[in-house]
């Protein structure tokens, strides 16, 4: 694989030009064009105005909250998603298939429904919220509530990306490690984890990307207090309510830029982990 040049690889199958053209056309039409229209909108307001809006205290606080809670939620999803995927692939138990199917529910559920259900559950009079409130812990209507909602919508991404890798994992490798006398914990960290790491990072990136822009499920549980639990997508909605399309686009572009940088970093990390594996 290492010895091939790009030219050789492209030449293996016929129709490279056609497929590349097709790919570029659809990528432009579906992804780049809407993004371009977003970037064009604030272009005529000039840099100083753009910068003033993008660095406004409230905007910074909201974007920080959105990115921060998305990162935390994706990290938690990565840990528990991996465990869920592990259990689903490695063990046989009753209702396993049912459980497996349930993982996809957060995909299918309208996010607003998820948000309302979570708010009802974690509110001070909810099933989980009430006992916690007695202990003096408040989850709903605080940034912690946002993280809970994001964990919920992000978990299937991790499970679904890690699961096939775990399924294809060769048992021989583990057995070889055992015969070589490696302790169990060492097998997990030196043998298994490096193998699933690229997939895990993909799952993490997907969960993270999905969480940054999430509005529907968060809005019902966040409380939406400015400078405290106000997410960036809500600020965009607020700008739109003021018929301030440019302002909304500025926050959108800022979020887009930051998300792109973070996703790029995750991609590089993934490439690095893959090369390290070889």
């Amino acid at each position: 694989m290492v010895g091939f040049s790009y030219r050789n690889r492209a030449g293996k199958l016929p129709g490279f030009g056609l497929t590349l053209g097709y790919t570029l056309f659809w990528l432009s039409a579906i992804v780049l064009l809407p993004l371009l229209s977003l970037i064009v909108k604030p272009a005529d307001m000039g840099w100083p105005a753009f910068w003033r809006l993008a660095t406004d205290k409230r905007v910074v606080s909201a974007i920080g909250l959105s990115l921060g809670s998305a990162l935390i939620a994706a990290a938690i999803d990565a840990v528990f998603g991996l465990i869920v995927a592990w259990v689903l692939t490695r063990y046989r138990f009753p209702a396993r298939r049912l459980l497996d199917a349930m993982i996809d529910l957060p995909f299918a559920l309208p996010t607003a429904v998820a948000g309302i259900a979570l708010a009802a559950l974690y509110a001070p009079n909810g099933w989980i919220g009430a006992p916690l409130a007695k202990l003096g812990i408040k989850l709903a209507f605080t940034p912690a509530g946002i993280v809970i909602a994001l964990i919920f919508i992000g978990i299937p991404f991790v499970v679904r990306t890690v699961q096939p890798v775990l399924q294809d994992l060769d048992r021989d490798v583990e057995e070889a490690a055992v015969t070589l006398g490696a302790p169990r914990i060492r097998i997990v960290f030196s043998v298994l984890l490096p193998l699933v790491l690229p997939a895990l990072l993909t799952g993490f990136a997907l969960a993270f990307a999905r969480s940054i822009g999430e509005y529907g499920s968060v809005i019902f549980i966040a409380g939406n207090m400015p400078m405290f639990s106000e997410i960036a997508p809500l600020l965009i909605v607020i700008k739109l309510e003021e018929f301030d399309y440019q302002g909304a686009a500025v926050i959108g572009v800022t979020m887009l830029g930051l998300s792109f940088i973070l996703l790029l970093a995750i991609n590089l990390l993934q490439r690095w982990s893959r090369s390290w594996q070889q």
């Binding site: 209507f141 939406n224 909605v237």
Partner: peptide
Amino acid sequence: VPVLDTGARG
């Protein structure tokens, strides 16, 4: 005001 919902029904 402890919670600012986005709409009246909320």
